[in-house]
Amino acid sequence: MEHHLTTPVREEDIRKLRMGDLVYVTGTIITARDEAHLEALELHEKGEKPPVDFKGVGVFHCGPIMKKADGEWTVIAAGPTTSARMEIFQDNFIETFRPAIIIGKGGMGDRTSKACQEFGCVYGAFTGGAALLAARGIKNVRDVFWLEEMGMPECLWVYDVEDFGPMIVTIDTHGGNMTQDVKTQVTERMEKILAEMEG
């Protein structure tokens, strides 16, 4: 199945997505990596709000290459980073800020998968390294926050996107987690190979 979503995405539309579906997003996606996740959660704990609203939008695990010319930011390259680093706080982030789709590469673990089920969020895998394909879907750089403190790769870039994709839904709201399934198979094959080597 192929889906074209527009942000803010309603939870009921997110729950229609199934592992293996193709997804394109139009509207808002916001980049956030390790430091931005931490900072947003710390602000929330202090009773303060981060400068952007993540509700119903795409949170993109991405540290882009950006260039400023004539006072305007443009995207040079913006592919996904390894999402597994965010596993330690992604569930808390989803519960707190309720994004509709987490965009990254390499998949995520059980904690994120559980939060996706509970709070209505999916994980969309974008092909790792395909930074120019991703940049093609970004139509405008609406805003940037925390650039001074965190630097270009770690800060929050707010993008207007049009049919940003294709992403493969690898974590859905029904307990499906494609990367974990493959990981289980790989571990089984590894054990078989190692056993054969033992003779």
Binding site: G63, P64, I76, G79, L132, L133
Partner: peptide
């Protein structure tokens, strides 16, 4: 297919194929 398309875009546009240089 996405990887190959990205490689082509990088070569044609003389842009980094991946944002993580």
């Amino acid at each position: 297919g996405n990887i190959l398309e990205d490689i082509d875009l990088a070569r044609e546009g003389s842009k980094p194929m991946c944002q993580d240089t």
